[in-house]
């Protein structure tokens, strides 16, 4: 199970203000970034590019969300209430979430990353469905799209790495 996923979702469910939702999302990204950064020295140099890229991606997401949280023009909206969305627990096609173990290889890391992006995407999608049309709805939609994009990028990398022999 992905660390903190269930309880974080519960956290989001119980939140009522947009600002708080953004804070939790930020911490998601931060925790993932830290996870990848942690792996950098542990993996071989041939694999290091992957975790470095992933860490950099998560940092970018973090910066994005952080920036949103402190924007002036949506300051009013982010105090607004958010309805609690329902959970939709569909999982990623053919990709499961393995236990990474002490020395994960490139395939394991990618599968974890893709699973994580999938869950994030689903979260934001559910949140978007649960809000009234407006800037908040758009914000969740935008975040969901971002996560989808990241996931498809990772799937491309997965194909290169696993199915094409890395060349």
């Amino acid at each position: 199970m992905i660390e903190g996923a269930v309880s974080s979702y519960e956290k989001i469910k119980s939140k009522t203000s947009l600002r708080e939702i953004l804070e939790v999302a930020c911490s998601f990204e931060a925790s993932a970034r830290d996870f990848y950064t942690d792996l950098i020295p542990k993996v071989g140099k041939n694999m290091r590019w992957l975790v470095e890229e992933l860490a950099a991606e998560e940092q970018q997401h973090f910066d994005l969300l952080n920036g949103l949280a402190s924007r002036e023009d949506i300051a009013e909206q982010i105090k607004a209430e958010v309805r609690i969305p329902t959970t939709d627990t569909r999982f990623s096609d053919a990709v499961q979430l393995p236990d990474l173990g002490a020395k994960p290889d490139d395939q394991a890391v990618l599968q974890y990353a893709m699973g994580r992006e999938q869950i994030a995407m689903e979260h934001y999608r559910s949140l978007a469905e649960g809000t009234e049309p407006g800037p908040i709805h758009d914000l969740f939609g935008y975040l969901a799209d971002e996560e989808t994009k990241h996931k498809t990028e990772l799937e491309k990398v997965y194909y290169e790495v696993v199915h094409s022999g890395g060349v």
Binding site: G44, K45, N46, M47, W49, L50, V161, G165, G166
Partner: peptide, 20 residues
């Protein structure tokens, strides 16, 4: 995939890699 572990950690660090 190539079994690059045979190179050993030290050599792997010295080498340049391009996306795996």
């Amino acid at each position: 995939a190539a079994e690059v572990e045979v190179l050993g950690e030290e050599l792997t660090e010295r080498l340049d890699w391009n996306r795996g």
